[in-house]
């Protein structure tokens, strides 16, 4: 077994990057969905996909990335980058759906406020973003928790390769398969501690920020 710290760090890096990536497109997407009624049906689509099984995402991505698959030439299969892409896709519906609600409320309050004070559309959007930021961060953290705790994608497109694509969850699965329950439980506790720690940190930041 690799040292647990390395695995934890690798997991955090992979899931963290996936989360940032997902946030990068999910939040603008949520803004788009919230600002125009025309896209409203898409919202239901994303809400419905929030609970998509991780294994399904992993499998679909595997079929795409496999050497014989349409994206096989990228040679991404069994790399950390493949996990990053997979997890980013996995949490996109979650971040989009939650941010959408936040931004929708934010728009009705803060966009109008900004306009009454003579803001341009861009300034208004900035104010909405600033005021909803704590809630947006919460939605991103929810995404991160799902990413760091998921197994299907990491196992199928990562391959659980020692020293390369082994993450906390795939380690837990392996340790369980090997009957090393102590190691599995230890990793599981670390994983839980991280999830709890992150959400506590966000809670603190939000309070410090003085948002409701």
């Amino acid at each position: 077994m690799e040292p647990i710290q390395i695995i934890v760090l690798r997991s955090l890096t992979i899931s963290g990057t996936a989360t940032l990536l997902a946030a990068l497109w999910s939040i603008p997407l949520a803004y788009l969905l919230a600002s125009s009624r025309r896209f409203r049906p898409l919202v239901y689509f994303f809400e419905a996909l929030v609970g998509i099984p991780t294994v399904l995402v992993g499998l679909l991505l595997y079929l795409l990335l496999s050497r014989n698959g349409p994206l096989g030439f990228l040679e991404l299969l069994y790399t950390p980058q493949a996990i990053i892409v997979g997890e980013a896709l996995l949490i996109t519906p979650l971040i989009t759906a939650v941010s959408y609600q936040t931004i929708l409320t934010g728009l009705s309050y803060y966009r109008e406020l900004a306009l009454t004070l003579g803001a341009s559309d861009k300034q208004a959007a900035l104010l909405v973003f600033r005021e909803t930021l704590p809630s947006l961060i919460s939605s991103v953290v929810m995404g991160f928790s799902r990413a760091v705790g998921e197994l299907g994608v990491a196992l199928i497109v990562g391959g659980n390769i020692k020293g390369y694509t082994r993450t906390m969850t795939t380690s837990i699965a392996l340790a369980t398969a090997m009957g090393e329950y102590e190691a599995a439980v230890k990793l599981g506790l670390v994983l839980t501690a991280i999830a709890v720690g992150v959400s506590l940190a966000v809670r603190l930041v939000r309070r410090e920020w003085g948002s409701e």
Partner: peptide, 25 residues
């Protein structure tokens, strides 16, 4: 300007809120 019946406040102090429009301008 339009003042809402149930106005919203942005994060921060009263001062920050009073400065909001001025900063925008």
């Amino acid at each position: 300007v339009y003042v809402h019946e149930k106005p919203v406040m942005v994060r921060g102090s009263v001062l920050d809120n009073l400065a909001l429009g001025l900063r925008i301008r």
